[in-house]
Design a protein around this nucleic acid. Sequence first.
DNA 1: AGCACGCCGACT
DNA 2: GTCGGCGTGCTC
Length: 798
Amino acid sequence: MAKVIVDVPAKQTDRPFDYLIPANLLGCISPGMRVVVPFGPRKVQGFVVAVETQSSFDHLREIIEPMDIEPVLNEELLYLSDWLTEHTLCYKISAFQVMLPPALKAKYEKKIKLKSRPFIHELDEAIRPFFYEKDILHWDEVLKSGQLSVFQKSTAAGKLEVLYEVKERVKKKQVKMITSLVKKEDLDRLEIKSGKQKQVLEYFADNPESIERKYLLKTLNISSSVLKSLIDKGWVEETVKEVYRDPYEDRIIQKTEPLKLTNEQSAAIGPILSSIEGEKHEVFLLYGVTGSGKTEVYLQSIQKVIAQGREGIVLVPEIALTPQMVNRFKSRFGDQVAVLHSGLSVGEKYDEWRKIQRKEVKVAVGARSAIFAPFENLGIIIIDEEHETSYKQEDNPRYHARDVAIERGKRHQCPVVLGSATPSLETFARAKKGVYKLLTLSRRMNDHNLPDVQIVDMREELRDGNRSMFSRILHEKIEERLVKKEQIVLFLNKRGHSSFVMCRDCGYVIQCPNCDISLTYHRFNQQMKCHYCGYEAMVPNVCPECGSDHIRYFGTGTQKVEEELGKIFPEARVIRMDVDTTSRKGAHEKLLTAFYEGKADILLGTQMIAKGLDFPNITLVGVLSADTMLHLPDFRSSEKTFQLLTQVSGRAGRHELAGEVVIQTYSPEHYSIELAGEQDFDKFYQREMMMRKVHQYPPFYYIALITVHHEELLKVVDTIEKITRFLHSRLSRNTLILGPVASPIPRINNKYRYQCLIKYKREPGLTQILKEILDHYGKEAHTNGLQVSIDTNPFILM
DNA sequence: AGCACGCCGACT
DNA sequence: GTCGGCGTGCTC
């Protein structure tokens, strides 16, 4: 008997169901395998979590078939799924699915079949023609026909039968291989009339090993009919071979050797190496300024792990996972590296994952979900840019890769290295307390200085009559670089053209009809777009409120800056990088390469250019507006601003040429901007810690966020109030409960949102209490659409 | 999640 | 009297 978690993400099915193992499969079914099981009238995918001899349930049904020969989840990952479920309060099935490549998620098909040909005469005329030429009909054809009830009646009468199928999402890629069956010495004895056929066999005489079919056709310039007759004669053989899709196929990668470490690097790597050697679990914070050579420390630590016969995981933020970054690992470790990131197709991800599972690689480099790489003998886990918020998944299961890393580190008795120039406050606080070991790299490699940073008060510019988006000083410095043929990076944390569209007469701001948020103007198609629900509309000619035609665009996005640059510096060649210009596959890389090769003077972009860029000719970085994030309703907004400004500044002057940074702002006195200007993380840390203490936020308190969503405002308010009252009755007096209040964006996609924030220091029963809430309201989600979501460590409070 | 079962109002 | 609306409960 097998205990199976079925692929039905709902409260009521979030427990194991027991199934008999059919006699022919006895011994073939083990925990961690996917199986197809009957569930009610249909078939679903399930995960075997245990194999036992007894069941408390009498009427067991049988497993239909296994979907794997080997388990896809090993023992550790099964354990980890329990941990995930417990910590993020998600369904078991969601935990399994997040740990596996999407290719392994089942695809369901529903069909209807004529049970037996003669029945066709007994079918209702309305549906009879559907079965004239075939017995099986896709369910969507049934729905499209508008005759659903007739189909149902015939099904009930036993004339038709509903089929449920569970399918694999992706096939293993196969190629056709050709092998010669003729030995070289036998060649002359054959009567070969055709010159082409002879040519093929002669080729094989010199190259006896198998060759890919399409490659053979191309190199010998023959048609497939030549091959066909050879196969018919039994002189060559065609076979299929399973291959990996290789996203890095046509790239030539030069091998690199370990670099000599600086004194600081050697001092930092020492404790990591001894932790690897001693197979000891420790968490290190590698705190190193931008350009201080953290990556080399990672590379050499991994080297050690590989030498020990163990494996390593390296997490890199999605936007920093550039080919440049990947190449650094591939060039050191060659084909021992698997790369997992969102740019890959489902099939490519699956193949990279299989390389790990089959132990064909030693290192996995990837974004957040790579933390679940199915290694069995981990020797190190590295998280680069540890403070990045993209390590937190914002939908279920709402896990933080850092927490998962530490949990896996404990199981494998291996070190976890968190690297950053601007660590998150939580991490730095732990490092200061000694919970994590602090390793510092305070100097840039080759002793290049950190760039000079200048903060410009844009209010003053305005007062002096400069209404442009460029301050005089930035304008001047851009001109200077253009003359000197040095490169410039301009950063603006807002894509699109303008952030909102407003009527100048009455002040009406055009809003999304489904969400409580203003629409963003996109120039290229003259449309306004909602970044939350995707709603699009044309810009109105007159104000919908007062009828005035003074419609104006406010707030500046990258598109508008690009236009402006064209006007002010017509000679400058500009590359714009944001979600809109990099969505096509490979576009990201292409733009960066072009910039690297000097095909542009100015790189203008959003977040995505803040990281990893390491180009020698960049000597000026301009931050057009440092404030965009500062005033968001989020207790981490100062931290995020500081981190971003520091990261962007770090792009300048990394090599021989000295770098300069200009930061434009309307709040130059704000400590996160001022201290980013001084590039003084330690001082920032102290200031921000004081703020967090006063306002009772992490790392002084833990937080949990409960959000209720529903189309009816009343229902939402009523529910969140009940939940809040329940929390007050159950939580300790030292715990703070904020709210209920409307979420900062009170309505998204026509659903109202109210929330309540719990801040606590010690609350041992919290998980249990939160589970009770989910249990209680979980049923309602299904019946009336009321949605209660809980995040036990929220990063976005909106 | 799906699906069946079952109980009420609007029709042939 | 029957068809079809959707509220309720179950799936090993």
